[in-house]
Design a protein around this nucleic acid. Structure first.
Length: 836
RNA sequence: GCGAGAGUGGCGGAAUUGGCAGACGCCCUGGAUUUAGGAUCCAGUGGGGGAAACCUCGUGCGGGUUCGAGUCCCGCCUCUCGCACCA
């Protein structure tokens, strides 16, 4: 490749990146919220080098921010670092450096990387979650929840990752394995802090309906995760002791068909049942420990064979006083409902299989419609039907009787409406070093005492040995200086909580900090936050569909309830970009399929990578990286560069006086080009702002470049004044429209055109509809839906006129073989359909 | 099983939302230029038929609505993702 055959991207990119840096091109005037647009990208873990797959997220955000700037919006585009947490810590341990140093180094590297991509942020607003200036307010947030009774400490069986040596939130356990290291998760019983997100379950679910601009997929995932089931609590009575045993069911209408009850092995009654057992309970005890040993992974498997054991005890069905046997089984879990299930084998498949295996009675109480095979021989009838053998409800439709059964239970004080959620409380304690310390002090006299706000931050000590201890204690417990303190209440000797917070706490509120990143008095300025939030456009990976996005919504609602902010949802619009794969797999160092951007940028320039990344496919879908196709983007930029240089005078002439174009005489070629230019502008607005369809936006610009070439060829080298201006306009608009996507090359071209000052000072072109009118259009004539010819018609004629002319045209009659057309449709634009 | 989304050339993907299917790009073929290669430019590029103008079939499968369906309706099939002994 010789120098004159491609544009000098290396120089150009260095030049403009330096200028943007110096001019702080993305600095936002936060005091002015008119026409504001908060454009936020999920902040990254500073965990190492970025590859082209990461680039997609940030390039999309950068293009949007640049475009909106050109539209005159006041854009807030900040960036920060999710710098606490396991990945940073693990890498630091592996490389034998302190997490803080490792993190700082990576942040510097990644900032350089952003800059090389031409991605600009308002770096004045940078936040880093591992700095005391930030985590001070994460601790403040903890105190807010503590004060609201939403942060509670309890002994709990928790998910313990033996490899990471820490507790995991439910959300971080996937199929019984640690989300990060894939180790099988164990159960441990520890004292842990929880955020009571379940208090907000109903609101987190209900408010999803207001999030019109969130992907349906993400909302569905959140709905599933919250897992709301409406039903009833029904109190059965244990015959031996008279204790109440509540069950949860979504089908109280089938209550008369209940023939036994099943408890989870973790159920609190199990111990006393074993103690009372006539046989000494050895068999029961063996069953319980065997099921417990199975572990979470095996028990979560729906294919697990249903096993159980009779306790020898009985419970009473409140609705008919009937005594039924009480069993323990491996298919009932303590996590959901009450850990006790009323078994209706005739109308629940699991109960059915269990009853078959252990020869328990199966009694049909919901009759299927006539002619339909109901329960038996192979499966339970789980649909609605007519109730039979159901006392006062006989003959009623089961779905209609359902609420009435609950009413009956309420009247007889044997149950009530209730709602069960799959969502668990958010466990936030971590026995790890690299996180925000939990601001709590334990005093022998005063108990659990929150650290007073004025004493924040509780600083993370610089430990020599920060590695996990592994016995359930945090590394912080090994620092006497950190551990021993005095009680804020009684000043007596006391100890600090030595756990740190889950990093999802850090990221649950960072979008608020950007509005006042240097405020040392408050986490954020509520007045400014209320003007700038919710975030107008949030962009990130779908892998955060549940964890981060649910926690951020929860924290927003808590802060709303505490009067800090006026809004209830943090992110008005959410866009989840697809992954970029290589060789069919996610890029990772292990697989050796990472495409590093540096080589690409050296060879083709950052603009080429940006354009290719945007052009690769619909941004919400996964896409396969294709090294060869990158060259298509490169060719396009080179062609643009050459074309503008060949017609610099024309572009300058247009730019000097854009209004002149309307007064110039033009032939059909020139007018056709103008029409294409302006319909391209229209398409661009829709594609960029409304739909984020960058792939079609770029193909439209490619078409415009092709159209320019075609128009020039059609003019056969004769540059009439009209042609000059039409080309000038097309290229002028092209530069501007392309600039959000390929900012370096467009800034350079823009400067050459004679309008120094930078793209960000230029406006995105407006479509001029008057430029779209033409003298005549070719109408496609369909007869009975088949294309039968083409007719030239005057353009701009009223529909009726076009119709009249179409009817009168001999060509139409000829097409119809002499018969008069029965009906003529004129479709907007240029299609006529005639019905014979 | 429940929920969401998708199925269009050799490939990635378009289709102004019911109006000329395959835009744009990649691959491939031919031509121009070049000592050559590269780069660039031009032309072609869904299947079948034809020298050609054109004809014909064609958007996972089967029906339907309509002058007209990739798009709407009914019934299937396949794939991707999420959830799942959730009572």
């Amino acid at each position: 490749m010789s120098a004159e055959q491609h544009y000098p991207f290396t120089e150009i990119e260095a030049k403009w990146q330096a200028r943007w840096r110096e001019s702080r091109s993305m600095a936002c005037d936060i005091t002015d919220a008119t026409d504001k647009f908060y454009c936020l990208m999920m902040f990254p873990y500073p965990s190492g080098d970025l590859h082209v797959g990461h680039g997609r997220n940030y390039i999309i955000g950068d293009v949007l921010a640049r475009y909106l700037r050109m539209e005159g919006r006041n854009v807030l585009a900040p960036m920060g670092w999710d710098a606490f947490g396991l990945p940073a810590e693990n890498a630091a341990i592996k490389n034998n450096v302190h997490p803080a140093d490792w993190t700082t180094r990576n942040i510097a590297r990644m900032k350089r990387q952003f800059s090389r991509w031409g991605i600009e942020y308002d770096w004045q607003r940078e936040v880093t979650s591992c700095e005391p200036e930030y985590y001070r307010w994460t601790q403040w947030l903890f105190l807010q929840l503590f004060d609201a009774g939403l942060a509670v400490r309890k002994q709990a069986d928790v998910n313990w990752c033996p490899s990471c040596k820490t507790v995991l939130a439910n959300e971080q356990v996937v199929n019984g394995r640690c989300e990060r290291c894939d180790s099988v998760v164990e159960d441990r019983s520890l004292m842990q802090w929880f955020f009571r997100i379940t208090e907000y379950a109903d609101r987190l679910l209900g408010d999803l309906d207001q999030l019109d601009h969130w992907p349906e997929r993400v909302k569905t995932m959140q709905r599933n995760w919250i897992g709301r089931s409406a039903g009833a609590r029904i109190d059965f009575e244990l015959v031996s002791t008279g204790e109440k045993v509540p069950v949860f069911t979504t089908r109280p209408d089938t209550l008369w068909g209940c023939t036994y009850m099943v408890l989870a092995v973790e159920h609190p009654l199990v111990e006393s049942i074993i103690a009372r057992s006539a046989s000494g309970g050895a068999d029961l005890r063996a069953f319980v420990s065997r099921v417990k040993r199975l572990g979470r992974e095996a028990r979560g498997d729906a294919g697990l064979e249903k096993e159980g054991i009779a306790t020898g005890e009985e419970v009473v069905n409140p609705v008919n006083g009937r005594r039924i046997p009480l069993w323990l089984a491996n298919y009932v879990v303590m996590d959901y409902g009450t850990g006790a299930v009323m078994a209706v084998p005739a109308h629940d498949q699991r109960d059915f299989e269990f009853a078959k295996r252990y020869n328990l009675p199966i009694e049909e109480v919901v009759a299927p419609p006539p002619g339909v095979q109901g329960t038996l021989p192979g499966a339970a009838w789980q649909d609605a039907g007519v109730l039979v053998r159901s006392g006062p409800f006989d003959g009623q439709k089961s779905d209609e009787a359902l609420p009435k059964v609950i009413d009956w239970l309420r009247e007889h004080e044997a149950g009530d409406h209730t709602v069960s959620f799959r969502l668990r409380d958010w466990l936030i304690s971590r026995q790890r070093y690299w996180g925000a310390p939990i601001p709590i002090i334990y005093c022998p006299d005063c108990g659990t005492v929150p650290v007073p706000e004025k004493d924040l931050p509780v600083r993370l000590p610089t430990l020599v040995d920060f590695r996990p201890v592994g016995d359930g204690r945090s590394p912080l417990a090994t620092s006497g200086e950190f551990l021993h303190t005095s009680c804020p209440k009684c000043a007596g000797p006391a100890e600090r909580d030595t756990d740190t917070m889950d990093t999802f706490v850090d990221s649950s509120w960072y979008f608020l900090r950007y509005v006042s990143p240097h405020d040392s008095e408050r986490p954020f300025d509520p007045a400014v936050a209320n003007r700038w939030l919710p975030v107008d456009q949030y962009i990130g990976g779908v892998e955060h569909a549940i964890l981060h996005l649910m926690y951020a919504r929860f924290i927003t609602k808590v802060l709303h309830d505490r009067g800090w902010i006026a809004f209830k949802e943090p992110f008005a619009r959410l866009f989840t970009q697809g992954m970029i794969t290589k060789d069919g797999a996610k890029m990772s160092k292990n697989k050796g399929n990472v495409v590093p951007p540096d080589v690409l940028i050296e060879r083709f320039g950052a603009d080429t990578e940006r354009v290719y990344t945007l052009f690769i496919g619909p941004p919400e879908k996964d896409a396969e990286w294709n090294d060869r196709a990158v060259e298509g983007a490169y060719k396009f930029l080179n062609r643009t560069w050459r074309l503008v240089h060949e017609h610099l005078d024309a572009v300058r002439a247009y730019a000097a006086n854009p209004a002149a174009i309307t007064g110039v005489e033009m032939g059909s070629v020139e007018r056709g080009l103008r029409r294409k230019t302006h319909s391209c502008v229209q398409k661009m607005r829709r594609d960029l702002a409304e739909q984020l369809h960058f792939n079609t936006a770029i193909s439209a610009l490619m078409e415009l470049v092709n159209d320019c070439g075609e128009a020039l060829r059609a003019a056969e080298g004769a540059m009439s004044p009209g042609m000059r201006l039409a080309i000038g306009e097309a290229l002028h608009h092209l530069i501007l429209m392309l600039s959000p996507m390929a900012p370096h090359v467009c800034e350079e071209l823009w400067e050459k055109v004679g309008r120094p000052g930078g793209i960000l000072a230029a406006r995105f072109p407006q479509a001029d509809l008057s430029a779209l009118t033409v003298d005549s259009v070719t109408l496609v004539v369909q007869v009975n839906g088949k294309i039968r010819g083409r007719l030239d018609m005057p353009a701009g004629a009223a529909e009726a006129e076009v119709k009249r002319q179409a009817l009168a045209l001999p060509a139409v009659e000829q097409q119809l073989g002499g018969t008069a057309p029965r009906k003529v449709f004129v479709v907007p634009d240029k299609l006529v359909n005639i019905v014979a």
